[in-house]
Write a protein that binds this DNA or RNA. Structure first.
Lengths: 188, 188
DNA sequence: CGGAGCATGTAAGCGGTTACATGATTTC
DNA sequence: GAAATCATGTAACCGCTTACATGCTCCG
């Protein structure tokens, strides 16, 4: 039940249309909970039916856009959700699985895959760091509670990606060496 | 399509019955790809139908257990999968979402949730560290390829949990302070 | 022989993904 | 006015979760 609350949060930060939400998910909130436009439209419909948000009446907007805003009930629901309890989601990482499989049947071409992932995570790390210097430039100064919390979340992204890049770098070294040494052994 | 390959890997490491697999998932492979017994039985059925594994005929075993082993086709399929390409799964973290929501509607009781998660991750970190000293005691010595790769995967788990515990400790500090200072403000 | 628990499985539902559909606006 | 693309949706599928069902064995 996280997607509706992610959407409520995004709409509180700024009322938006479905497409705008989709774009904003792609470059911010979605880093911690990805969603496609199909999911978002479906969920907007449900939230409107539930009376948690509404389409802003005003002008019909340009094009066919519908702008949504959060209603008081929606804010309440979100505040309640913030205090709710929920076990950490089990980790799901196919690449780690691949390495364990590689331990049994030989490394094959995992190296390429490892380097591909490394590039992706490095790029994401850069993106986060740019966001950090752009949105939270003044470290020492006392921030608003809002900014502090948002920065904290961004920090998680940065540390996470830093972990991945470092680990994958190590993995690449090990796998390259194993690949050179014992190609096609397959640990029969 | 990761679960079947996780099962093939586990069965290559050691032929097992469904229940044994479930237990082993809970304490090892499942750290990177959790699975319940329902999923496992279903998948074992599919893999057997596909001719990738088979129930070991031998004695009917004690109880009603069926032991499965990997067939040559299964090993081939796994080796092919190791070299396959596959984008990193998008991160999904409700707790980060909660903090962003807290930035908009006030921190409420997130503190308790943060500390609960902190305890879970700290416990997991301990478990990983115990596994490391037990299964990979000799650092300096040259390991087999198999052991090296498996250790590398365990390393990922350790670094990951270390990251979480450190980040959550920081979050706890910040949230406590915010909670003390501006409770019930809700950033109207 | 009756109850506890072991071991394997079935069924329903839900969230997420992928593919496709529709209308409206802009561009050439 | 045809093509591109913007904006909103619908439909089908698939893996995972939760709840329930069944038979077997061990123990008192």
């Amino acid at each position: 039940m996280s997607l509706p609350h992610a959407i409520l949060t995004a709409l509180l930060e700024k009322p938006s249309s479905g497409l705008e939400l989709t774009r904003r998910f792609d470059k911010s909130i979605g880093f911690f909970w990805a969603a496609t436009h199909q999911q978002i439209y479906r969920e907007l419909g449900k939230l409107e039916d539930a009376g948690l948000i509404r389409a802003i009446p005003g002008p019909p907007a340009q094009g066919r856009r519908k702008e949504y805003e959060v209603l008081p009930d929606g804010r309440e629901e979100l505040a309640a959700w913030v205090s709710r309890s929920d076990d950490p989601r089990p980790l799901r990482d196919p690449l780690a699985l691949r390495l364990r499989a590689a331990a049994m049947v030989g490394v094959g071409d995992v190296g390429a895959e490892v380097r591909r992932h490394l590039a992706v995570h490095a790029a994401q790390l850069d993106a986060y760091r740019i966001m950090e210097t752009r949105d939270f430039p003044d470290d020492q100064a006392r921030q608003t509670a809002e900014a502090t919390l948002q920065h904290l979340v961004l920090t998680a992204g940065i540390e996470m990606e830093r972990f991945w890049t470092e680990w994958l770098t190590k993995v690449d070294a090990v796998v390259s060496e194993l690949g050179d040494a014992g190609e096609a052994d397959g640990k029969q």
